[in-house]
Design a protein around this nucleic acid. Structure first.
Lengths: 232, 232
DNA sequence: GCTTGACACGAACAGCGTTCGCTTATAGAA
DNA sequence: TTCTATAAGCGAACGCTGTTCGTGTCAAGC
């Protein structure tokens, strides 16, 4: 069947066949980040993104080879926003902690995007800029090159995983999923309700297992790793 | 349109309408793990799993409420396989390391399944069994309850993220994706080829950044965290 | 004025998780 | 032994996903 004639009288022009200002990659990335910021990474589909740009999904593939490629561009943009301090040997711990906190806040600003970061190649230019900055801080602090390199890898991996977990938890609590353990109180209740005979430590230390306001757990783990690499 | 008559003469019976032995949840979980082990977690679709059980996708929903539910069952099964040692105060470091290594090997045996672990609630019964076992080891080792609780969280998160990264890397190198950085040599080449002016540390320590046979990076990070919690 | 080339995009494809409602084998009643 | 109620199995469909093909349309060069 042939597609129906345009019938210009009856309908308002559905859309100019050629838009005034062509779509750019920057526009695509910006719009994608906007969608993620308001609706989360899972809502970022090619159709949703195309709709936000007032076009069809096929148009995106002129600027982006893949969705994986789009993911790389998004992470690259995020990394570009990070400010890497000039290394100060006396304050290397606070500096490396600051960079990790920046990454954490960027990830959490765009919920779920850390999933893309975990699946990405470490070869992107903006990514190596971050690695370079962190490496400079650790080396200035007197950390051995090998330990510094591996510690950066571990830190980046942990931050991404932490943010993914937090994002998932927030999304589920926002969705008001009744079967999901929403708050700490509910989790605490479940732990204390366990049979004390088979789970003695879990029931006794349920408070500690569920403790942690805000990013206490994050700060603790960063301290663990940074102290560990300092004593090496 | 009515569905066509069975026509029992011309065709072999397409499938017994009621199978001799009903499908059980254990069967579903076992088959799913088999699919993951041979084809990876991404290949585990409801249709693929149903096909492996010689049925249609709808039949699975009699035994599993969701794909998320299936994921929980899979992780539960994995956790059930772990052997948790009797706590020995003198060897708590080796013991906690051993548990993490077990988890790592289980995850890597079923490539990509750690993705399901990252998205899961920590309320599953088998999961709390693991937490209980790890908590017992750390408390026996003299670690403070709060530090122990948070350290377990950090360790589990890191192990899952590490395995996810490794699984993705292996899958891409197996797919022979040409655009993917396959081996360390190629990565090393890219790092050294960077402009030394803007990336001085990365180019100089490219060897360290790309170093690590097998699970060296994993062992390093575990040492970081365990030493950190010991000195606390 | 005409041609050329690049970009935009509607429509379609294969595959995904999930649901509806029909079919059918068996257990228990008569 | 025959009949019926029940529950499990499952074919077909829905709405969604990423991706591709061929067509449509405008802007610039001659």
């Amino acid at each position: 069947m042939r597609h129906q004639p345009p019938d210009p009288e009856a309908e308002a022009a559905p859309r100019p066949r050629r838009r005034k200002t062509p779509i750019t990659v920057e526009q695509v990335v910006d719009t994608a980040l906007g969608v993620i910021a308001t609706e989360g990474y899972e809502a970022l589909t090619m159709r949703r993104l195309a709709g936000a740009l007032d076009t069809g999904p096929a148009s995106l593939y002129a600027h982006v080879v893949n969705k994986a490629d789009l993911d790389e561009l998004l992470i690259g943009r995020l990394c570009a926003e990070l400010v890497l301090p000039e290394p100060d040997p006396a304050a290397w711990r606070e500096q490396i902690r600051g960079v990790c906190t920046q990454i954490r806040d960027q990830y959490l600003k765009y919920p779920g995007i850390s999933r893309a970061a975990l699946a990405m190649a470490p070869t992107d230019l903006e990514t190596v800029r971050v690695t370079e900055g962190m490496l400079a801080i650790l080396l200035a602090g007197g950390v051995a090159p090998q330990a510094a390199a591996w510690a950066i890898d571990a830190l980046l991996l942990y931050v991404a995983a932490y943010c993914l977990e937090v994002s998932i938890a927030r999304r589920r609590s926002a969705h008001d999923d009744a079967t999901w353990v929403l708050d700490r109180d509910e989790l605490l209740r479940r732990f204390t309700a366990l049979p004390a005979a088979t789970f003695p430590h879990t029931t006794r230390h349920a408070a500690e297992l569920t403790a942690g306001e805000g990013h206490d757990r994050f700060d603790f783990t960063l301290g663990l790793m940074i102290d560990g690499v300092a004593h090496r």
